[in-house]
């Protein structure tokens, strides 16, 4: 692969991605704060204290009571997808600190498979399900993720890239002393797709994990603000 292209996607693109990602996430989180506090619009039983509201939001994020009660399939897929994705991302984030973790290979492989099964399940469900219309944007995020996950899984399972090199590459980016990434076509394609996904996330998919705090707070908060 062209050397300049490798440098672009391994050295410059990560900074572009990080800036876009961080700015867009901050914007997406704070844009709701500047909207007026709404009228009390709770669904009862609701909560009377902020601590109770926040605790319940935290439990609902993991327990997903709505999907669990009304749609077991999406509940199962959502669990597989999100747990798989969070573990996979955590194993990537560890490069900030260390090159290896115990059982990383096994845990990473299982997590990648869970996330991939969840993503494929979501796509099939979107295509088959007639209750809601899905648009190109809905499929695009999932397709992007499936490609990224599949390549990542292959790279991990067949140990295509040396992990110490990955660690030094991530360290270089974070300490503003970037070095060229491992030169492997599949790995480079993997990080291109991963970065496109990260740039795309805040504009589409990442809105919902932020919105959950605001949406759940509205329906859990039974406090009136005029006494």
């Amino acid at each position: 692969m062209d050397e300049y292209f490798t440098i672009f996607i391994g050295i410059y693109l990560p900074y572009i991605t990080l800036v876009v990602f961080i700015v867009a996430v901050i914007y997406n989180f704070f844009k709701w704060i500047f909207l007026p506090r709404p009228i009390m619009w709770a669904i009862f039983p609701a909560k009377k204290s902020l601590a109770n509201i926040l605790f319940t939001i935290a439990t609902r994020i993991f327990s997903l009571p709505g999907p669990r009660k009304f749609d077991k399939l999406i509940f199962t897929l959502a669990w597989m997808f999100h747990v798989g994705l969070i573990v996979s991302l955590t194993l990537h984030a560890k490069y900030i600190f260390i090159p290896h973790l115990p059982y990383e290979y096994e845990v990473g492989t299982i997590a990648g498979m869970l996330a991939a099964i969840g993503s494929v399940g979501f796509i099939i469900r979107r295509y088959v399900d007639k209750r809601a219309d899905s648009y190109f944007a809905d499929y695009f995020a999932l397709i992007l993720l499936i490609i990224t996950l599949s390549l990542g899984q292959y790279i991990r399972m067949f140990r295509v890239v040396e992990s110490t090199h990955l660690w030094t590459w991530v360290q270089g980016i974070l300490t503003l002393n970037p070095i060229p990434p491992p030169v492997n076509t599949l790995f480079l394609i993997h990080i291109v797709f991963a970065q496109i996904y990260m740039i795309y996330l805040p504009f589409k998919t990442l809105i919902h994990p932020i919105a959950i705090f605001y949406g759940q707070k509205i329906i859990l908060d039974q406090r009136h603000f005029k006494g």
């Binding site: 709404p38 009304f70 999406i74 209750r131 219309d133 899905s134 919902h208 509205i218």
Partner: peptide
């Protein structure tokens, strides 16, 4: 507009922008 519809603007915009079209609501 914030002034015209302050009581319901936040839940309205959340519903308009953050729905992922999962369709779970239909079963309720």
């Amino acid at each position: 507009d914030k002034k015209n519809n302050w009581p319901f603007l936040l839940p309205l915009r959340l519903a308009l922008e953050a729905c992922t079209h999962c369709g779970t609501c239909a079963e309720a």
